[in-house]
Design a protein around this nucleic acid. Sequence first.
DNA 1: CGCGATTCGGTAAGCGCTTACCGTCAGCAT
DNA 2: ATGCTGACGGTAAGCGCTTACCGAATCGCG
Lengths: 341, 341
Amino acid sequence: MGKTPTINDVARLAGVSVATASRTLTQVRRVSPGLQERVFAAARELSYAPNPHARALAQASDATVGVVVHDISDPYFSEITNGLLSAADACDRLVVFCNTFRHPERELAYVRHFRAQRVQALILAGSGREDREFGAAMAEQILGFEAAGGRAVVIGRHYAPGDAVLPDNFGGARALAAALAEMGHRRIGVVSGPPQLTTTFDRLAGFRRGLEEANVELPAEAIAAGDFSRESGERAAHALLQASPGLTAIFAFNDVMALGVMRALRERRLRVPADISIAGFDDIPIACDISPPLTTVRVPMAHMGELALRMVVEPARGSALRVEHLPTKLIVRASTSRPPR
Amino acid sequence: MGKTPTINDVARLAGVSVATASRTLTQVRRVSPGLQERVFAAARELSYAPNPHARALAQASDATVGVVVHDISDPYFSEITNGLLSAADACDRLVVFCNTFRHPERELAYVRHFRAQRVQALILAGSGREDREFGAAMAEQILGFEAAGGRAVVIGRHYAPGDAVLPDNFGGARALAAALAEMGHRRIGVVSGPPQLTTTFDRLAGFRRGLEEANVELPAEAIAAGDFSRESGERAAHALLQASPGLTAIFAFNDVMALGVMRALRERRLRVPADISIAGFDDIPIACDISPPLTTVRVPMAHMGELALRMVVEPARGSALRVEHLPTKLIVRASTSRPPR
DNA sequence: CGCGATTCGGTAAGCGCTTACCGTCAGCAT
DNA sequence: ATGCTGACGGTAAGCGCTTACCGAATCGCG
């Protein structure tokens, strides 16, 4: 009848015990070639698929990888996700995603959920937060998770323990500052990200450093915070130009906001880059497709995803935390040029 | 010690049997208020989290929703996914994603995987295929899944049984054809999608119909197939202009390819829309942010995702297949205008 | 050729939960 | 009062798999 076959059926058909069937199927111990063959044949004949829950229950852990993402529809995260998924496919792992919609509580809730599910690995793919309380709560979760044998990797700088994949936000922003200064810009506006994110913090610090090194000032009113969404970029640009009409360049902390900034500039009939230059961060795929193509800092997003997945899957070697620093790269395109006059 | 608490611990602490504990926690049968209270208190005190695998094993089904997507980094799918996830969050469901990278075999493999996992619900979020063999194989999987009590929803027209969420690809393309003809275009190029996808089929059919109704021809050499990627759009546009230099408009079957087309036109020093008009399909978020803003057909992607999730989660009423037809809407922006002269 | 060492199958005990089934007892009609 | 019903707790049997443990068979060596 229609029942899905169990390992018992396989064992019976192969004429062996369930132990032998299980062992051949999981390769956990040598089984003589003859029996092995019979078991495989039986499994194939029944088109047997092991019940992952039973397996997870029996061995008290689940091979899937849990991923917590801020916002999957943000190209930054889609790219990371893409890398993650292709690496997962390569090593035959299943990945479960959760979207926090940028709510810290949800982030914690999802991590707790994954712990309950006994996933083997956990990837935090959002930025970390400059928030003591949150950091402590998350650290507790992660430590508990790892204490129970789980493996955790964070993407971006977190105050959570665990292996990490870190893009060089600081260096990228610094290089961009240097480049803008070099072009002759002296009055630069910044559309930053949510202040509590470490990503925002690092990009700002890097940009500041770069400007200092070039002796360019960055007054407080030339900084407006966005939330990494297009709309926020648009709003911030208007605010910025209101407060400091003489800006010759605007740096948005991600490309998505840079798109919003561009739109704001169009509304104000400012030409890019003739009247004002604009730069973003990330180098999302469409950055080179818009007109003018966007100057930005390339973050190897897909690669970060792949790396994170591989780190989480390969066995821990020793107990040393692994931290992979990934370089970012300044990509100068047509949206920036020397300032007018 | 560090063991995670089980329902036994909760029962013991509350001074009841595991059956009572389980029943209070799952609300499956009335339990007297007094005991109920004690169980909840015990669970809270131990910060008990049920083991989802044990639960899935015991009741032979798993509350998570499996989603099969073609390419999560394609904005079309990220938007659907976003809708899916927010609906899932609202009803407290976990969602597992798989990316097929557009390989039909993987699509089948993932569906099989989800069946093995006994997920309660399955969403096929990619386009269907005009492929008899594939359709049959998929239909078999879906039927088997549903026979075992699972619920399946497809997004887009599939040859698979199951509830469906269907955007009006035909109508949208037809409306666009009418609009272009109305503007005066007579020589229109098409960058279509992968020929085996039902989405491609329907958009082409709709566009054809619209042109016929306006007495505009669509010769075979004015159609080039892409694969929904930016690069393919760029290549196809070059091919098209090579073959038919006199085109006054190009319709790309999705916005991502339209971006590629735009780039190709820029390379050829053609102005949009002064020299040539261009239109896309989907209305992905950046469609209105590029310059010129893209004329396109809006597909309610996020809404489709939400709807699919809700359909899959709410109990089946009767055995009638539910099919939700969703309208699409022509959005005319600056990338189209009347043809030159 | 005997004996310990090794290999490899099988038996059975769980993993943590749900739920069929049974027993108890209060409440009610007769 | 008695018997019946219904409500509600508990007992225990799984769900499908892994794996510790045991014992039989095989091997190599002195």
